[in-house]
Design a protein around this nucleic acid. Structure first.
Length: 258
DNA sequence: AACGTAGTCAACCGCACGGTC
DNA sequence: AGACCGTGCGGTTGACTACGT
């Protein structure tokens, strides 16, 4: 089977996505969907390969991404599912609404694997204060305030802060028009009445909302997104996402005509 | 205060698969 | 039937940050 080259290396950008690129990608997908990832960057005027766009969308910009800490339940699920499925991250992700395979993979390699090994070690030695000694690191939660990359000089989107909230409200609302021809199959987070994933998603929301607020640094209630986001995002973050949202609003107005 | 180390995570890479021509 | 194309997946890497010394 022949394989198309990932992308024409000619002049295509790599590395972290800039807020502007995110904006362009989100706006384009809102308007036209992503029927053809390969053609998308060209159509959107992005100097990225389709693969990169897809990854960015799937792992970061998609509105149904659930940001914030993995709950104990989620971590347990990952451990259990990994036990059953092995390294089939996408399959595991499919059972954890709002989580991406990439994220799960990262969590596994950075947290759970070690924890499991430590647990096994404990069981074996019935002693050894696993992780008790050594360097004390802040818990993962402490890092998820959104300031991490936003503070960096690199023009990277303010990912962990308000991203999901804003794209959520913007794209989801767009999806809620329900008739956008631009959002094909995959956009199951829209409120398509017969979408199975939507039911899933709904339970996800209720489940999420029933959880203690401290578990998240990102508001899970779409309509409250901005208010809560404001409390956790830096001014720069807010400014950026506000602009994204406002432009998304413009896009939405155009949608019914599409 | 500066430096070194370890942890985190977004993004890239290459392969495999399924669909289409 | 076979080649081509697009997409999805898993592994890996590099940039960045926080913490400890």
């Amino acid at each position: 089977m022949g394989r198309a080259p990932c992308c024409e290396k000619m002049g295509l950008k790599k590395g972290p996505w800039t807020p502007e690129e995110d904006k362009v990608l989100v706006a384009h997908i809102q308007r036209f969907g992503h029927g053809n990832w390969r053609a998308l960057p060209k159509q959107a005027g992005l100097l990225r390969c389709g693969k990169s766009c897809r990854l960015r969308w799937i792992n970061y910009l998609r509105p149904d991404i659930k940001r914030g800490n993995f709950s104990k339940e989620e971590e347990d699920s990952i451990i259990r599912l990994h036990d059953q499925l092995g390294n089939r991250w996408s399959a595991i992700a499919a059972r954890l609404p709002g989580r991406t395979d990439n994220e799960i993979k990262n969590v596994w390699h950075t947290n759970l694997k070690k924890r499991l090994e430590a647990t096994k070690g404990e069981e074996a030695a019935h002693e050894a204060p696993a992780g008790g000694s050594g360097k004390k690191r802040r818990p993962a939660a402490a890092k998820r305030g959104g300031a991490r990359r936003a503070l960096a000089a690199a023009p990277v989107s303010p990912e962990r802060s308000a991203s999901s909230s804003v794209t959520e409200s913007s794209v989801t609302e767009q999806g809620n028009t329900g008739s956008s021809p631009g959002f094909p199959k995959e956009e199951s987070f829209t409120s398509s009445p017969d979408a199975e994933e939507f039911q899933f998603d709904e339970s996800f929301w209720s489940e999420t909302l029933s959880m203690p607020l401290e578990s998240f640094d990102v508001p899970m209630e779409p309509c409250d997104a901005f208010g809560a986001a404001a409390s956790s995002a830096s001014a720069d973050d807010m400014d950026y996402w506000l602009r994204v949202f406002m432009e998304s609003g413009d896009v939405q107005h155009e949608l019914p005509q599409i």
